[in-house]
Design a protein around this nucleic acid. Structure first.
Length: 650
RNA sequence: GGGCGAGUAGCUCAGUACGGAUAGAGCAUCAGCCUUCUAAGCUGAGGGUCGAGGGUUCAAAUCCCUCCCCGUCCGCCA
């Protein structure tokens, strides 16, 4: 029995060979045009079609349909096993029809044989790839806006791994910067308390409240200074911001009265909290022990919470990379030394600027990088007047470090950081890391916003990812209880968990990453068609049929699968490997979610229309059972790609 | 002002990389289907100037140009 890892691709190749041969034979005078074979919009038109007669006809001064007829007449498909017939159609298409008897056998046998490996076609050029994703600052719980990142990132990592690449998932911990010092300052003021709840939630409250109090303090000073200097514009601005923060303070006081009062009392003891925070920040960058212990302690509390959350959705990381480690070791300094030898740095009173646009000009990169000639890349400040570095400066060092461990780097980072990511890439070019620059990819995704406003962690305006997961599981539990009251409490809980988690994961992966998403509960709590629960349910249904048989089908006759729906199902599962390759090569995780939904949809229609176990003949039952088994395998493999459980029962 | 991304049914979105046959789903609305393999399901109906205008082409949601609208970036923040 023949096995094909890519059954549909085999058919395509046969069609291509036939077509190439007939053109060379019939039209020796024409240069062979690129042969485009596309899936037909309708099964009546066969399975693949080409429109090349339209182009050829024009060159030859003939009617497209006449040409199509002439070519078809010269085709002898008998030498090819998967082509049933070739026919001219429409205004000049050539349609290729599959020999379903053979194709079904090939497809179903291949799936049976390859089983859990079916679809995962390995690349010819395996690479070491780092996927950096999540990288939420360790200041507050991961919120639903940020959760889109790990869902996309982990799916990318999964599909690349299944494609045969050596993938490493990295989490970049951004612990250098004022905000880490703010939360650490608040934590210290409270006397380094033990968390009384999930640690990231705990740290998040301290961060928000501290931020608010410190900010009000700062704005009051700004206001007083502006009053003194009679600077009307500054005064108006300060007052406006102050009003905003004061209203946030009211909210926070109501939400966390004890914490707020405690922090307020402690911070008021400080004559200058702002200065304390800056001091802590500098001490941390200098690697002083006390500061190190303190900030790492707070950060680790938060990160432990993150891991707990991500474990729920089965996401783990291979490497946790601390930004501060780059500062404490000579790595950042080395990069600066190297950059100073390039002609792209300018020094204005100690402030070092990187002239990114000049790099594009000197190395002639605008066209190469697909940038518009109008796109004048703004310069990037690398070093402040006080000698400290900035985020992107450290990111350059980090990226170089990553390339010591991989030959391709994919950064899953929000679209709003596109400019910084471009400047980073240009810095690599400037440093002559050309290969690395070419293999650095910014996988940009758009924001998740709440209806009416952007989520703000500093202001405490967010819905945490844990809340969303909990709510989804609760909702799923209600559904299971309603639909399957006879199940044991344990079973209900198990089902509710994978349904709820799956629903959230699917909802966040299903939309094209470049599209902005406005969060609403309806989207993640959808358990109907076009959701993970729908696909999971379909898988359970297929499993349920298979559970009822005592003996596996003996010598099924695939020629009996003649219904249109059966053919469409076979086509769909035969194309799974092609879909997988495309999703992986073009990094389109949402394609996989769409595919699972599409297959589930077709299966459910089939399920309703045709009996499997009680088909007219045992032979037909056997053939359909093999089909159901294959569909179950493909659904399971596809769900696995996007990190969603394929349940036996629900 | 400039860059980048988006604009497809009342709502949420596929389809655009590589132009092809009547532009597809789901939700919502309406009408049906559980003595038959799991009704988280299925069947059917209505619903479209594919943001606007021009161009290229035998053929444009898809390619090119102009414009409109929304988001986002253009920090000695991260």
């Amino acid at each position: 029995m023949m096995i094909a890892p890519t059954p549909f691709e085999l058919f395509r190749q046969e069609c291509q060979t036939v077509l190439t041969a007939v053109i060379e034979k019939t039209l020796p005078e024409v240069a062979l045009p690129p042969i485009n074979l596309r899936k037909t919009p309708n099964i009546e038109y066969g399975q693949l079609a080409t429109s090349l007669c339209f182009e050829l006809a024009k060159k030859l001064g003939q009617k497209p349909l006449d040409l199509a007829e002439k070519l078809v007449a010269a085709i002898d498909p008998s030498a090819f096993s998967l082509i049933d017939k070739v026919a001219p159609a429409g205004g000049g298409y050539i349609n290729f029809h599959l020999n379903f008897a053979k194709f079904s056998e090939l497809t179903l046998q291949s799936i049976k044989e390859l089983d859990s490996q079916y679809g995962f076609v390995k690349t010819d050029t395996p690479q070491k790839i780092i996927v950096e994703h999540t990288s939420v600052n360790p200041l507050h719980p991961i919120h639903i806006g940020q959760a889109r990142n790990p869902m996309i990132g982990d799916t990318l990592a999964r599909i690349l791994q299944y494609r045969g690449h050596e993938v490493s998932r990295h989490y970049y911990i951004d612990d250098v910067g004022r905000q880490s010092s703010v939360v650490a300052y608040g934590y210290l003021k409270l006397g380094k308390p033990q968390p009384t709840e999930k640690p990231d939630l705990f740290v998040g409250k301290i961060y928000t409240v501290t931020c608010c109090i410190v900010e009000i303090n700062r704005l009051k000073q700004t206001r007083d200074r502006a009053t003194e200097l009679q600077n009307a514009a500054d005064l108006v601005k300060a007052n406006k911001e102050l009003d905003e923060w004061l209203s946030i303070a009211v909210e926070l006081k109501e939400k966390y009265p004890v914490l707020f009062e405690m922090l307020l009392a402690k911070i008021e003891e400080d004559p200058n909290p702002e200065e304390e925070i800056n001091k802590l920040n500098r001490a941390y960058e200098d690697g002083q022990h006390e500061a190190k212990d303190l900030i790492r302690e707070v950060s680790n509390l938060c990160l432990n919470g993150f891991q707990e959350t991500m474990n729920r959705v089965n996401i783990t990381y291979d490497s946790w990379d601390w930004e501060s480690d780059l500062v404490w070791t000579p790595q950042v300094n080395q990069v600066m030394t190297q950059l100073k030898t390039t002609p792209y740095l300018s020094n204005e009173k100690g402030v070092l600027q990187f002239n990114a646009d000049q790099v594009t000009q000197t190395l002639n990169l605008k066209t190469k990088l697909g940038l518009s000639p109008n796109n004048e890349i703004p310069p990037l400040t690398l070093v402040r007047a006080d000698g400290t570095t900035l985020y992107t400066t450290r990111d350059i060092a980090y990226t170089i470090w990553k390339f010591k461990h991989a030959n391709k780097v994919i950064n899953v980072i929000g679209m709003e950081q596109s400019l910084a990511q471009l400047q980073l890439k240009l810095a690599l070019y400037a440093l002559n890391y050309t290969k690395q620059a070419e293999n650095l990819f910014h996988f940009a995704y758009n924001l998740v916003t709440l209806p009416g406003y952007k989520m703000s962690s500093r202001r405490g305006h967010y819905i945490t990812f844990d809340e969303v997961l909990n709510e989804a599981i609760n909702r799923a539990h209600q559904e299971v209880t309603k639909r399957s009251p006879m199940l044991s409490p344990e079973e209900k809980q198990t089902i509710a968990t994978f349904v709820g988690l799956g629903a959230v994961r699917y909802a966040l992966i299903d939309v094209d990453p470049s599209k902005n998403v406005i969060f609403n509960w309806e989207r993640v709590l959808n358990f109907e068609t076009n959701s993970a629960p729908y696909v999971q349910y379909t898988h359970a249904r297929a499993t349920s049929i298979l559970r009822k048989i005592t003996n596996p089908p003996q010598n099924p006759n695939y020629e009996l699968l003649t219904e249109q729906l059966e053919k469409e199902l076979i086509l769909t599962i035969a194309s799974f490997p092609d879909m997988f390759i495309e999703a992986t090569e073009y990094l389109k995780p949402n394609m996989i979610a769409d595919y699972t939904n599409n297959l589930a949809d077709k299966f459910n229609t089939f399920y309703n229309a045709y009996p499997v176990l009680k088909a007219d003949t045992q032979q037909l039952t056997d053939a359909r059972l093999t089909l159901v088994k294959a569909i179950q395998t493909v659904l399971k493999n596809a769900l696995n790609l996007i990190g969603i459980v394929a349940p036996e029962k629900m």
